[in-house]
Structures are given as C-alpha cells and as structure tokens.
Design a protein around this nucleic acid. Structure first.
Lengths: 117, 117
DNA sequence: CACCGATATCGTCAAGTATCAATACGGTAT
DNA sequence: ATACCGTATTGATACTTGACGATATCGGTG
C-alpha cells in the first residue's frame, strides 16, 4: 500500500516507448512515410498530405524532432526534413525483438509465479 | 449512460497508427517484451514486472487486445496471453517501410503515401 | 451451496494531447 | 527599410488517456 499521493505519474520513462509514441499518430505516421519515400522533404509539402492546419503540422514535426525521428535544416526561408536513420534502425531493432518466440533468452528464465503444468 | 464508442479514438483513422499506439506505453511495451520472451504468459505474471495495480494491467491488456497485439485464452481461473504473430509481422513490415531512402520496395500494397506534386 | 482467488469492468480524477487562430520569428526580395 | 512568405510559438479548448479503488464476474474447491 504505497502512498503515492504526490505524483503517480510514470511518464514516458522508456525511450523506446517514446519512440513509439512519436509514430503513434495518423498525421505523424503520414509524415514519416512521406519522409521515407523521398530524400529530404520541405515542410511546406506536408500540409498537402494531411488535412490539418499549418500550426498542427509544425507541432507534429516538433514531436518527431523531440522523439528523435527526424532532423531538420533551414535552407533559405524553407525548412527541410529528413528521416533519422538511427531512429529508424532502432525501430527495426525493436520490431525484431517483438517477434513471437524470438526474444531475449533471459526472459524465458524469469521466475513464473503461477504455472499450472 | 455513456455512449460506448465502438472504435477507440476517433482520431486514430489509420490502423497502423493504432497499432503503434498500442505499443506506445512503457507498461504495454514491457508486457509485449515479456510476451515475446515466452511461449504464452499468464496474466498473473505481468503484475510482477510492472509497478502498477491489477486493474491497470488488465486495462493495458485490453488495449493490446483491441489493437491486435495479443490474443488470450482462459485456462481454469487463469488467463494466458500470446503475442499475435500477425500484428508482429505487420509491425515489422511497417518498420521496414520507414527506412530512410527506401520508398517501400518490399512494402505491401497497403501504404498510401501521397507524393508531393 | 458458500467461499476464494484470478481477471475484468465501472466510476472517477489528474495529466497529456491534438487542434486551430493569432502572432511572433527568420529570410528574401523589392 | 518595408513588404512578403514560410515556419515556429503561444494561448485556449475539447478530447484522450493512465491510474486506482470498488465491485462484478468467472471457475474451481470445500
């Protein structure tokens, strides 16, 4: 009976969960897909693919930046975005871990509290 | 009575974003990892790995069920959970799509990426 | 039957999030 | 400098979510 009256908030302590969170939105996923399909995309091109206003796009781009999914660079008055190769690689790595039956050997050795044979 | 919406999250129109949303939580990701590490896990084992109460675990398991990540089966008074192979495969497929510079060569016909004019 | 342990659901609260209008900022061209 | 364009930030608002206690439900047991 822990009294957690102050902050029961867990927040996103897991960096991988944070990565998932970055992609767990239709608009952001569309942006990521558009980025994967091209070699750098201008921010001005995202407003076309998603039915949201410009500030919303900018907000999602910020989330993608903060979650490590993309990097950006200013060119003249435009801003270009690229998919972050590291994030994508990390993502694929997690995808590989989440294959049924294919996982850390240690997990199988974990104590089973109740295991009716 | 509260209108019980059939589909969770009206904003989640993209099924893939829904899949990501299912894993975008530290507790749920821990559950998925534990599931990937074993050949079926009893629900009673999840309370040990995550510092949350039983109703919370049950809630997250429900989310994972609704997002297609897991399937469950009752055995006596216990409930066993397995990672859904289809969801894991779909996830790996999307992860492959999100590779920089790879315009979905191995991707299935599902992705709809709108090319900027 | 009554009882008990394991899960799921309900009710509710606090915190996080998506969205847009208005506005500020950064560069370019006139 | 001034006007203009593209992008980011701010502020407000409605909605979504994660958490837990209380309680219901499901199965097995005495």
């Amino acid at each position: 009976m822990v009294v957690n009256t102050i902050r029961p908030m867990k927040r996103m302590t897991d960096p991988d969960a944070l990565l998932f969170h970055g992609a767990a939105d239709p608009t952001r996923l569309a942006i990521l897909r558009q980025l994967a399909g091209g070699d750098g995309v201008c921010a001005c091109d995202f407003t076309a693919c998603c039915a949201v206003a410009q500030p919303t796009i900018s907000h999602h781009l910020k989330v993608l930046r903060e979650t490590g999914w993309v990097r950006s660079e200013r060119r003249a008055s435009f801003v270009w975005y690229w998919l972050n190769a590291e994030a994508a690689a990390r993502f694929r790595s997690i995808a590989g871990e989440l294959t049924p039956g294919v996982a850390a050997p240690l997990a199988r050795a974990l104590p089973v509290v109740q295991a009716p044979a």
